[in-house]
């Protein structure tokens, strides 16, 4: 059975992601889910977080997911501008957190955004490792999310290790960068199984362990005892998410085909208006 129909899966995932964040950390906003999780966490669970408006800049802003306006958000809110050096220094010194959305994650928490098939002759070339090797060699907590838990995404072994998981991948690395948590549309998983393999931590309301096994490319470790249910979002959590994402960019990440294309265009046409309605122009050009 899929997730309880009374709940919105995007709000369950974002709230669950938010509840993992803690401390005084820079939190990157690469995706709508990641930025909304950071925002909700700061409002409700981890007030010292320093939320960014883009992957590299605009510290201490209120994120508003859009397709193209991240840097404009920095500008209109006069977010503290950071550099790429600031970002990687924060990664290396473990003052940074990010929710990574990999194409594949395996039982050891290795992650792939580079290619499907062999790197030298890929079936599908994806985007390249980007900054994931830096995260998986330095951060004391690494967070992953996948919106469509399937045997193609949650696999026995990734086709290419863009990010280092547990097991052999830890050679020469030590504990920093090891996988901490995976949140999917089915539940929350950690890496406390045998040899640091994936284990069930909680299932979202309405999800069965059979469905998890069916939709996973390997047998997931199930700890002894009763499996707990993920705490659903509270009315406050839901209100904060909806208020922060008036264009519903988060829904886009769950859609595909013509429905997604239509939503995409609608968001693009409305995003400037939504930005100006929320923030009067006080940026560098307006000064």
């Amino acid at each position: 059975m899929p997730i309880d129909p009374q709940l919105n899966v995007d709000e369950v995932i974002i709230t669950t992601m938010a509840r993992q964040l803690s401390g005084e950390m820079l939190v990157s906003s690469v995706t709508a889910f990641g930025s909304l999780a950071a925002h909700l966490a700061k409002r409700r669970y981890a007030p010292d977080l320093a939320v960014l408006s883009t992957p590299e800049s605009g510290m201490d802003v209120t994120p508003m997911p859009t397709l193209t306006l991240g840097q404009f958000l920095t500008d209109v809110q006069q977010g503290i501008p950071l550099t790429m050096e600031d970002i990687f220094d924060a990664i290396f010194t473990d003052h940074f957190r990010i929710w990574i959305n990999p194409s594949q994650i395996d039982q050891y928490g290795n992650t792939n955004i580079t290619c499907i098939g062999d790197w030298y002759r890929p079936k599908v070339a994806l985007v390249g490792a980007r900054g994931i090797p830096e995260d998986t060699s330095h951060l004391s907590e690494t967070f992953y999310y996948i919106l469509n838990h399937s045997p193609r995404a949650v696999v026995a072994r990734v086709d290419f290790k863009s990010g280092a998981g547990n097991g052999d991948s830890r050679r020469g690395l030590g504990p920093h960068g090891a996988p901490s948590v995976l949140v999917t549309d089915l539940g929350v998983f950690d890496f406390t199984g045998p040899d640091g393999t994936m284990a069930v931590r909680s299932l979202h309301p309405g999800v069965s362990i059979e469905e998890v096994q069916d939709r996973t490319g390997f047998p997931v470790h199930v700890p002894a005892g009763e499996i707990s249910a993920t705490d659903p979002p509270s009315p406050d959590d839901i209100r904060i998410i909806r208020d922060a994402d008036p264009l519903e960019v988060r829904k886009l990440e769950l859609m595909s085909g013509p429905e997604a294309a239509e939503k995409f265009v609608a968001i693009y046409e409305r995003e400037r208006q939504a930005l100006h309605a929320t923030y009067p122009r006080v940026g560098k050009l307006g000064r």
Binding site: T114, A129, P133, E134, D168, S169
Partner: peptide, 8 residues
Amino acid sequence: HATLGTDV
């Protein structure tokens, strides 16, 4: 240390 443990 970046790229240790990865296929990069």
